[in-house]
Nucleic acid binder design. Structure first.
Lengths: 146, 146
DNA sequence: CTGCCAGTTCAAGTGAACTTGAGGTCAAGG
DNA sequence: CCTTGACCTCAAGTTCACTTGAACTGGCAG
C-alpha cells in the first residue's frame, strides 16, 4: 500500500486531521487522490510536515513557509533567509536568557518587594527597552480520541 | 505637575495610546483623573508598564499578568510561578539553540538538497518531535504620526 | 441490504492582543 | 469667539493558526 490516509498521517505526525485539511487548503501539503471521499497522501507528506514544524519552530509564518516550496512542490529554501532567521533566533535567545536569569533571581530574591530589588529593576529595564519576539502559548493541545 | 497625560506616557514608554486605553480597560493600569477628557496618569504607571512588558516578554498572557497585581494595585508576584516560568524559558531556550544551530548549518550546508543533509534531517526530527512554544511575529509596529 | 462511523465540505467561531473608524468633546491659541 | 487638533467612546475589524458545528457521503462489517 503506497498511500496513507489522513488518519494515519495524523497518527504518525501528531498533526490533527483538521489541521491537515487546513494545511492542504493553504497549499502547504497536497493529497494524492481519494478512496471514496477520503484523502490519500504520499508518505513523503510526513517529511513535508516535519519541514513545516521546523519552519514554525524557527518562527516563520505558514505563509512564509508556503513560499519556501517551489510551485512544483520541491522545497527550495533560501539559505540567506535561514542565516537571517538564525541571527534573529540568536538575539531572541540572548534576551530569553536574561529573562530567565532575572526571573530565577526574582523567585528567590529576599527584598520585601520586587520593586526594591536592584536585579529586578534591571530586568525591568531590559524588558521595557528591548522589544522582543514574544513567545506564544502552546496551541491548546486538545487530545484526540477523547 | 504630578500627573502625566496619555501622550506623555506613550512617549516615555513607547506604548501606543490605543494600547494604554486597552490596558486600562483590561484593568492592567489605571488613570488617576482627567483634564477635560484627557486621562491623567501617575508617573508610577511607567513602572507598571515595564512590569507588563516584562511579563509579556517572559511569556505570560495579559490576563495572567493582571492576576499578578493584587486588587489594591500592589504587585504581588508568586515566586513559585516565576520559577516555573524560568524553567519553561530554559526549555524553550534549549530548543531555540538547537534550531539556531541547525538553521546556521543548513545555510551553509553543501548538500545539493536540504533533505539529503544528515544535519538538516536531524533538525527536522527535533522540530517534528518537540512541540515548542512557537515565537510570534512582532506586533506590527506601525509608526504613529503617519 | 443496511446502518455505522470516520471521513467530507463550508462557514463560522476562537483567543490573544491590539488597531481602526466613525462620530463626539473640549482646552487652548489666534 | 471660533477653529483646531489631540483626545474621547464604542463597536468592529485584523492577524494567525487553527477548531468546531452542521449537514452530508460512502466504504465496509454484519
Amino acid at each position: 500500500m503506497r498511500d496513507i490516509d489522513i488518519a494515519e498521517v495524523a497518527g504518525l505526525s501528531g498533526v490533527r486531521a483538521s489541521t491537515l485539511r487546513f494545511y492542504e487548503e493553504k497549499g502547504l501539503i497536497a493529497s494524492h487522490g481519494r478512496r471514496g471521499l477520503r484523502r490519500l497522501f504520499d508518505p513523503a507528506v510526513l517529511d513535508r510536515l516535519a519541514l513545516i514544524a521546523l519552519g514554525r519552530a524557527a518562527g516563520f509564518t505558514l505563509d512564509e513557509i508556503g513560499r519556501m516550496f517551489a510551485p512544483d512542490g520541491r522545497p527550495r529554501i533560501d539559505r540567506k533567509m535561514l542565516a537571517t532567521k538564525a541571527d534573529e533566533l540568536d538575539r531572541t535567545i540572548r534576551r530569553l536568557n536574561a529573562m530567565r536569569d532575572g526571573l530565577r533571581h526574582a523567585a528567590v530574591c529576599p527584598a520585601p518587594s520586587h520593586m526594591e530589588c536592584p536585579t529586578f529593576r534591571r530586568l525591568l529595564r531590559v524588558a521595557a527597552a528591548g522589544k522582543m519576539e514574544t513567545p506564544k502559548k502552546e496551541p491548546a493541545k486538545s487530545r484526540r480520541k477523547s
